[in-house]
Design a protein around this nucleic acid. Structure first.
Lengths: 193, 193
DNA sequence: CCCTTAGACGGAGAGCGTCTCCGCTTCTTC
DNA sequence: GAAGAAGCGGAGACGCTCTCCGTCTAAGGG
């Protein structure tokens, strides 16, 4: 019964190598062309057939989720840093939202699939997002307890707000002050006067 | 030299009829399936070939722009109504932003092409958006003069904020209070405490 | 060291979209 | 009614996602 490790080690080595290689290539393609980069292009660049790509990751979302997992670990450690280093709960929430915003701009066009994921419970991305909403809630509760955030604001709305802000940034690059302007508006929206 | 009207009347009658018919059908399709509805489907439903559709409207964006023009007229008269009926400049701005939000939800997925348009000067949608940003600016200036809106907020950011809010709504239908929550956040963001 | 076999591989191709090109048809004008 | 300008329509090129299945290979036992 304890053969989980055995069955893992029984799996092919080349499969794991392929998986890793796909992830590396996908990272490059999504970085260069945004999350809408062609799946076939990823397969070709990785030197494999489309079938192989799709056996490893049944769709673009699954691939994205795997790619985001690594960055998600960074985000978690960032959360711990903030918890440790920032004593003011309001400032902590602000910094956490900032970290979330950076996470959501890992690839061009990332906010869109994240938003989509929020409407479908079954998505692997949905679970990821849900986790971050929960973390946001912890920061938010602390800030609300200390009177630094309006009591009627909800964590889900803040998460969506961050997503929306990064969504705007994706397109409004021509005017980079829009990003800052909207972030400020968002902050004024949740912070107490 | 004054044959603009003549050359208009010289154009074929069937062409105009086709154009009108295309617009009617496109309105239906975009209403039912969102702005990503298939162009070929529109052509087929209109009983014409794809070539005809694309000669009238060189791409989806052009079709969308034509469709939005009619609704834009509504929006302009709405603006006049607000100007006439609402004396408080802050409330006027709020109502204008609300009207903008309704305009931007004419079709599912509309915020996306609008955002895209804002980055490309050449787009027909870009001009439309620019016009609305200017109108927003008028309302905003008045509200700022009367002390109802923070002075550092810019009209462009407000427009983007409205777009972002409707973008969120498109997906977060499962939780309709998110729409209200974000709108409130947005308002708290631009209004003075 | 070879044999067996579970399971991975790869690519042809189905299905769906956008958009173009060009021969045919229709409207307009004289 | 003829001529010509202009619109019409659909075949098809091209790109993308994703599947199916014949082929190949790594892993482990004899």
């Amino acid at each position: 019964m304890v053969d989980a490790g055995v069955s893992l080690s029984r799996s092919r080595v080349d499969k794991q190598r392929n998986r890793t290689h796909i992830l590396e290539v996908a990272e490059q393609v999504f970085t260069a062309q945004g999350v809408a980069g062609s799946m076939d292009a990823i397969a070709k660049l990785a030197g494999i057939g489309p079938g192989t790509l799709y056996r490893h990751f049944p769709n673009r979302e699954a691939l994205l989720a795997a790619l985001l997992q690594a960055r998600g670990d960074d985000l978690k450690s960032r959360r711990d840093d903030i918890r440790r280093a920032v004593s003011d709960s309001t400032e902590a929430l602000a910094q956490w939202l900032d970290a979330l915003g950076q996470w959501a701009t890992a690839f061009d066009g990332l906010p869109e699939p994240l938003r989509m994921a929020l409407t479908e419970e079954t998505s692997p991305l949905a679970l990821t997002c849900q986790g971050y909403i929960t973390m946001t809630e912890e920061f938010l509760r602390a800030a609300q307890r200390d009177g630094g955030a309006r009591p009627q604001v909800r964590a889900r709305d803040l998460f969506l707000g961050v997503l929306a802000t990064t969504w705007v940034r994706d397109a409004a690059m021509a005017d980079e002050s829009s990003e800052h302007g909207l972030s400020t508006v968002l902050r004024c929206g949740w912070a107490t006067p």
